[in-house]
Design a protein around this nucleic acid. Structure first.
Lengths: 166, 166
DNA sequence: TTAATTTTCATACTTTAGTATGAATGCATT
DNA sequence: AATGCATTCATACTAAAGTATGAAAATTAA
C-alpha cells in the first residue's frame, strides 16, 4: 500500500497578491475617518469612552479574525485513493490444503494420486515408486474410495477441480 | 478507482473546551484594568487619543487573529492513498483454440473428449450422447491416436494442460 | 455425381483397471 | 504388550478400457 501526499493548494500566496494589503489599508483609513467624525459629532464625554473603546475592540477583533481566515486559507489538502490492481494469474495453481485434508489420504496414497493425475498407468506408477503392481492397485482402490469416485478418470477430474494436484 | 475523502481533524472542537473561553475573559479583564490604569496615569490628552486607539486596535487585531487561528485550526485534510486490491481470476479457463485445432479432431470426437475429461466412463458417454458403446469406443480410440496418448487418463491430463477442455 | 470424410455400429480380442480378501511388516500410541 | 494404522504384497476375479477389423449410412467437397 503506497501513500501519496500531494499539496492540493491551488490558491496563490495572498502576500503576493497586494489587493489584500490595499483593502486592509482602506479599512483602516475609513475607520479613522469614522472615529474622527464620531469625535466631533458627540464631543465624547468621559463616561462614553468605555463604549467607544468597546466598539473599537469589537471591530478590530472581527478584523483580526477576518485577516486570520485570509491567511490560513491556503491549506494543504491530501487525498485518500483506493486503486484496484489486477494481478494476472500466470498458472493459477494454489494448493487447496483444506480439501486435501478432508480426504484424509495417507502419504503414500497422495504420492500415488499425484502420479495418477499426471496420466500414469498403474504399471508406470509402480515403476516410478519402485513398488509392485499389486500395491499400486491397493492404493488406487483405497484412493478411489476415499475420494468417493468410481474410476481414475473421475479421480483426475476431481483432484484438478478441487486443486489438490497441479 | 474509488476515492475516499476523510476528515483528518483530530482536534476536538475548542468551544467544548471551556479553558479558551476563560482565557479570553481573563485577557479582556486584564486589558480593561490596563486601560483604566493608563487613563488615570497619563490623564489622556486629546492628541494622545489617537495613539491610545491605535494601541487598542493593534491589540484586538492580534487577539482576533489568535482567536481565529484557534477556531480554524481543525482544518480538513484529505489524503491520497493508493490501495492495491488484488483481483484473482475466478477459474481462469481460456480456451486454447490453437492447440485444439492442431489435434484435428472431428466434432463428434470433441464431444466425446469433453465428456471424457469430466470423468465419464464409455458407457456414460454412450448414454449421454445416445450412442452405442461400440461407437464411443471407436471415437475414444481414434481420439487417443490423434492426441498421441495411450489412455483416457493421459487424454484428460493433456486436455486440461493444453486448456482445450474446462 | 463421385470421392472423401464423418459418423455410426458390431464383433472379437487383449490389456488395463478395479474389487475383494488375506496376510506380513513396521511404527506409533495407549 | 496390545492396539490401531500405514504400507507392502499376493491371488483371484470382475469390469472396463482399448485395439483391430469390417461395414453401412450420412455428410461434405470436388
Amino acid at each position: 500500500m503506497t501513500v501519496l501526499r500531494r499539496n492540493m493548494a491551488s490558491r496563490k500566496n495572498i502576500w503576493v497578491d497586494m489587493r489584500h494589503i490595499i483593502l486592509y489599508g482602506l479599512l483602516l483609513a475609513i475607520l479613522v475617518f469614522l472615529l474622527k467624525w464620531l469625535q466631533w459629532k458627540f464631543l465624547i464625554a468621559d463616561n462614553a469612552t468605555d463604549i467607544y473603546i468597546g466598539l473599537i475592540a469589537v471591530f478590530f477583533t472581527i478584523l483580526g479574525v477576518w485577516i486570520a481566515t485570509q491567511l490560513i486559507k491556503p491549506k494543504t489538502q491530501t487525498l485518500i485513493v483506493e486503486k484496484e490492481v489486477y494481478v494476472s494469474c500466470s498458472d493459477g495453481f494454489t494448493m487447496n490444503e483444506a480439501e486435501l485434508h478432508k480426504l484424509n489420504l495417507s502419504n503414500r496414497e497422495y504420492d500415488v494420486l499425484q502420479l495418477l493425475t499426471k496420466g500414469y498407468s498403474n504399471a508406470e506408477i509402480a515403476d516410478n515408486l519402485c513398488l509392485s503392481l499389486s500395491t499400486i492397485k491397493t492404493h488406487v482402490s483405497n484412493l478411489l474410495s476415499k475420494m468417493d469416485v468410481k474410476s481414475r478418470a473421475q479421480a483426475i477430474e476431481k483432484a484438478k477441480r478441487l486443486k489438490i494436484t497441479p
